[in-house]
Structure formats: C-alpha cells, structure tokens
Nucleic acid binder design. Structure first.
Lengths: 209, 209
DNA sequence: TGTACATCAGTGAACGCGCGTTCACTGATGTAC
DNA sequence: TGTACATCAGTGAACGCGCGTTCACTGATGTAC
C-alpha cells in the first residue's frame, strides 16, 4: 500500500520509483528463491511491472546485478562502521566485531553475497560505482589497521596488506559457511565461535612463542 | 586420436570411456569458456556425442557437476600432499607451501573452483563421494596442524579449528583473486607475495608482542 | 486558469536462443550354447 | 568355431521452459504559452 496514492487506486501507470523497487525486488528474490532465480523477468514480475520496463532504468541485466551488488557493499560498509563505533579506540575489538558482522551478513544474505562475489556479474569492472562501493568498504578495514599501528597494538607493515589478509580470512570463512563446506569436525562450534576463533588467530597467530 | 582404434576409423559407436571423457570435456569447457558455459549439452557436444548420451553415465546435470567438483578436490589434495612431502618435518613450511598451492590451483582453474564452491551444485550433500573428497583434502591440513603441535611450533588447541582457519584464510584470498576483488592498494604485490604474506600472518599473527 | 505539446515511463507481442530431460529407437558387444 | 540372443551405450526427435532483448505502441506527466 503506497502512501502516495489513496488505497483504492490499484496500479498507477507510472511507478514513481521503479529503479529502487527493482533493486528491492531483486533482494527479495535472492532472499526467498536464491541467486539462480534472479532474472530480469522475475524481478520485473515481482515489482508488478512488465518485463520490458526495467530497461527504462537499467541498460541490461548486468547493470541491475551491479546495483544489487553495490547495495551489498554498502550494507557491509555500514555494519563495519557500526562495529568500529561500538568500540572506539580499540582496534583489536573493532577487527573482531567487523569480522563477525561480515559473517553475519553472509549468513543472513547468502545469495546476496553470491551476487557480489561469485562471478555472476560478467563485467564487474564496467560498473564504476560498484568498484567505488567495494573500495569504500575495504578502506574501513585499512583504517582499523592504521589505528592499531598508531596505538601500537598492530605490528608495522603495509596496512593495506593486513587489511586484505583480514578480509580474505573472514571472507573465506563466510563463503565456506554459506556453502556448507565446514567440515564436521569444526561444526561443533557455532558460526560466531568459529569467527571469533579466526579473528583471534589472525591477531595472535598460530605459532608458539 | 585414440590408440585403441586404427587412426582411419572415425567415430566408434561405443565410446569406451565416456564417463571420464565427459568429465574431461567439462574441465575443458571450464578452462576455455567458463562456468556459465558448462551445460550438459555443451559437455556432450565437446565429447562428440549426442546430448542424450550423458544420461547413460550421470543421473542428471548435478551428478556431472559433482563429479567435476570431486576431481577438483582430488587435485587440491594431491598438490597439498606434494607440498607436505617437499618439506618433511617442517609443518610451518608445509602450511605456507600448501597455501600457495591452493591459490595456484585457483588461479589456474578459476572456474573449476567456482563449480566446487559457488553454489552451482544444487545439492552437494547428495553426493557422498564429493563430500568424502572434500574431507580427505581437509584432513591433510589437520595433519599438518597436529604435526606442528607435536614438534611444538604450533600452539595447543583444536587442530581441526586451526585447519579450518587456515583453509578459510587461503580460500578467501583465492576467491578474491579470481574475482578480481583485490584492492588496487594491494595489487602491487604478486599473488604469490600476497599468499605468503597471508600464511606468514597466519603463523605469526598481526598483533605486536 | 486552460490548452497544446514534448517527453518519457511502462506495455505487450515477438524474436531467437539454449537448456534439461524423456522416449522409442538402433547398433555394437559379449555371452550361452 | 558359429549362431541366437540379451544387454545396454549411444541416437535424434521432441517436450516445455524461461530467458534477455527489441520494438512499435500507449498513456501519464509536466512545461510553455
């Protein structure tokens, strides 16, 4: 029920904000039916619009996919930012929290993550705003590393590379979890326990002193 | 040119080993055309056989995908085993080498890795041999951790969880690399440098003493 | 305030495509006698 | 060694499907006068 229209008027010819509605429809399909059900036609259907209508807002299927992926990076960045603010001046905790936030995002939106990472997008490099969104999310991790180095809890070294390592660690865990690839021997632990084990290991290392 | 048949005889009605030929055809398609081109019909075409023929050897498309994924795990296990043997009695080096072997596999066979992990398989849990192959590869990592603990270079703790963390770390890096998601700031380093940075970090940790 | 008109968002029919799967069949193989 | 026969791997036509994209269109909107 739209607030713009009196409730009885059924389907206005002009949608008003079809661009966003299509993205939302895409997210709903990802959540309810999975990535393999995400077609332009399905998205249009779900938005209550003819299957040709999306072409007024997106050049092609890839463009819509890119917009959806971009939104995912924005969500990741937002939750990372929240984790940082929850532990001001404690980069180690920020690392652990944003790692757990990442894994939570993956568990709650597994197919959204797949659109972002699994090569569904034919030409990710063609979508500038997508790349920017990815970089923005990543730079938050770099900031944490820098802050850690400033207060002396993180060793010297290129913060971008540390950030990449942290990302890889947590991303790997996230995709293994949503792909059900976690070996039975480790399944005894909850996803949160596994994540905190990983971030802890990332900080301390596995080597004995 | 088959060795079984005199060269002039063109296409024998019975293939002889279509089961394996189909898997090989699948791998060739993955290598040359990518995961999105991997259809049952394409595989049959490439194997020089009618599109219905595969059904004599695989129940459905998923079964062929599972066989291909399984082969991937076997390849991973083999290269891990080779890395272990290259540095007998040095678990830390084994860890670094098998990590780099993993990333190399991903770089050389990106779409093979995608079949193994990107949810292309609808029901991975239905394919027992696939699960076994995965577990077998994973157990090698666990063995390394145990060996490290035995000689005292790896801290106490559940070796399965350490192995999972190591896998996640290197798997994350591998998928970020093949998805071209490595941020520009880190691209200055080669994949091998990045991998060794990660495995080094995994051992030492990022925290200052 | 009222009207003509340009703009453009959304429509619905149509295109060609490749897919997974089924089915009745045909041809090669190997075994029993 | 030769023949009848069961087995089963591979064939090719057919099914129904949903997809991305294009196109000439129609209907709503807002702006210029």
């Amino acid at each position: 029920m739209s607030t713009k229209q009196p409730a009885e008027s059924p389907a206005p010819y002009h949608h008003g904000d079809l661009h966003n509605a299509l993205i939302q429809a895409g997210l709903a399909i990802l959540a309810e039916e999975g990535a393999r059900a995400l077609s332009l036609r399905a998205v249009a259907r779900r938005a209550g619009v003819s299957h040709a209508a999306p072409y007024r807002h997106f050049a092609d299927k890839d463009a819509l996919l890119a917009a959806i992926a971009e939104q995912g990076f924005d969500m990741l960045a937002a939750s990372t930012r929240a984790a940082i603010e929850r532990f001001p001046a404690d980069p180690v905790a920020q690392l652990a929290e944003s790692g757990w936030a990442y894994v939570q995002f993956a568990l709650q939106h597994p197919d959204h993550l797949r659109v972002m990472f699994s090569g569904l997008l034919r030409t990710p490099e063609d979508h500038a705003t997508l790349r920017t969104a990815g970089r923005r999310a990543f730079s938050l991790l770099v900031d944490i590393m820098r802050a850690g180095q400033r207060v002396g809890v993180i060793v010297d070294g290129a913060p971008e590379q540390f950030a990449l390592a942290a990302w890889a660690h947590v991303h790997g865990l996230a995709v293994l979890l949503i792909d059900n690839q976690i070996p039975a021997a480790a399944t005894a632990a909850s996803p949160e326990q596994l994540t905190r084990m990983c971030t802890g290991l990332f900080y301390r290392g596995v080597g004995s002193r």
